[in-house]
Computed example of a mutant assay.
Amino acid sequence: MSEPSTETAAPAPAEWSIPRGLIVLLSLAAAVVTIAGLKAFSSVVGPVFLALMLTIAVQPIQSWARRKGWPTWLGMALALVSVVAILFGIGGALALSAVQLASLLPQYADQLNDLLDHGRGWLSDLGVSSDQIHKALSGIDVGKAAGVIEQILGGVLGVFSNLFFVLALLLFMAVDGMTMDRRMAIVARERPAIAQALGNFVIGTRQYLVVSTVFGAIVAVIDGGALWAMGVPLPILWGLLSFITNYIPNIGFVIGVIPPALLALLDSGPVLMIWVIVVYSVINFVIQSIIQPKFVGDAVGLGVTITFLSLVFWAWVIGALGALLAIPLTLLVKALLFDIDPTTRWADVLIGAPMEKKTAPHKKSGKTVAVETAVDKE
């Protein structure tokens, strides 16, 4: 018998891996650099994403024209005309109303002076010294009050400041949209998970826009009618402002009530201002804080906390346009960071996605399998 071999197999080399803590630090550093870049180029990022969102909103027009057998260029033209009509309609109405407001406010100089006199007397009764009262109220006048309201409207009008840039982007995106279906079919064949993530972003954005537009129109009609019934000047402007601020989650109606409440104070005194605030709060709280979040949550799968944090974050990064686009921007980030990888879709549970099973391509076989995105229902 041969003697057993004394040689032992060489140990396999240990695989080197990056420590998890280092991965977290690198990810945070990359996030900081990305956010800083977005903030530095916010004047470009905002209009680009606005054009993308509008293109997504009108893409069904191109699909409808294609199903009708019409030429692709005709569907593109119809979609582009629809977007241009929306932009110029809202922008023109806001600009015209802002001009009317600027010409109306100087008429309330006497009312503002009376309010300031009452304010001085009330502060004196509370024991506030005359010097402190003078410092607190000396800088208030109709011109500055008009400036505050115009600044609020200017933030809304700022959305349309890069109108020609947005229109150019819309034209190019509409041209690309004529072949987007074929491109996405190729992506779905080569990278099914990516195609599904982008598809979820498009569907979620479109559903969010539909829900917000419908509820915004309802709120605008009710608010405008209530202001007209109470005799507040320029009810159409404030109804239009309610429609636009409805796209700002959680605090949109708070922004929308400030200008009409101030104008009601100047026009008829504090009683009318209180009525405006009460009516706005009741109408908008019921619609925007109770009814609408249910539909928005079902459409986009974002919780209330994530929605509010998205508003704060994107408004800080991009500005007023970021507040209007907070939900679609968050949906895009969610698609690129979580939905694009089946192994990270568990994060949907944490950010408030509906608890249901979704189908997603298996990362190895490429076949469609059920992926659990939430806790199993019993």
Rank of each mutant, 00 (worst) to 15 (best):
G204E: 00
M53F: 13
A315R: 05
I291W: 11
W238V: 02
G225M: 12
L321N: 01
V148T: 04
V214S: 01
A195D: 03
A10I: 09
F49N: 00
E372N: 15
V375M: 10
S63Y: 14
V371Y: 07
A217L: 06
L309Y: 11
I255L: 15
E15M: 13
L227K: 00
F338S: 01
P13S: 03
L28V: 08
A146V: 05
S130N: 10
K367P: 06
W238D: 00
L115S: 10
G303A: 11
Y208E: 02
V211M: 09
V369T: 10
A51M: 07
V286M: 09
G147H: 01
K39T: 10
W70A: 10
I340Q: 14
H134A: 15
P328M: 04
R66N: 05
L101G: 08
M178D: 05
A51N: 08
V83H: 07
R189T: 09
G239P: 00
V83W: 05
S124Q: 13
V369H: 05
S365F: 05
L78P: 01
A85F: 07
A136E: 11
L262H: 03
W314E: 01
D114R: 08
V166M: 03
A95T: 14
L25T: 11
P4G: 04
G366F: 06
S161D: 08
I258E: 01
P293A: 07
M230N: 00
L163N: 04
E15L: 14
W346I: 04
W16D: 07
V317F: 06
Y247P: 06
D267S: 14
F285S: 13
S17N: 15
A374C: 09
I203P: 02
A220D: 08
V300N: 00
G91N: 09
A315Q: 05
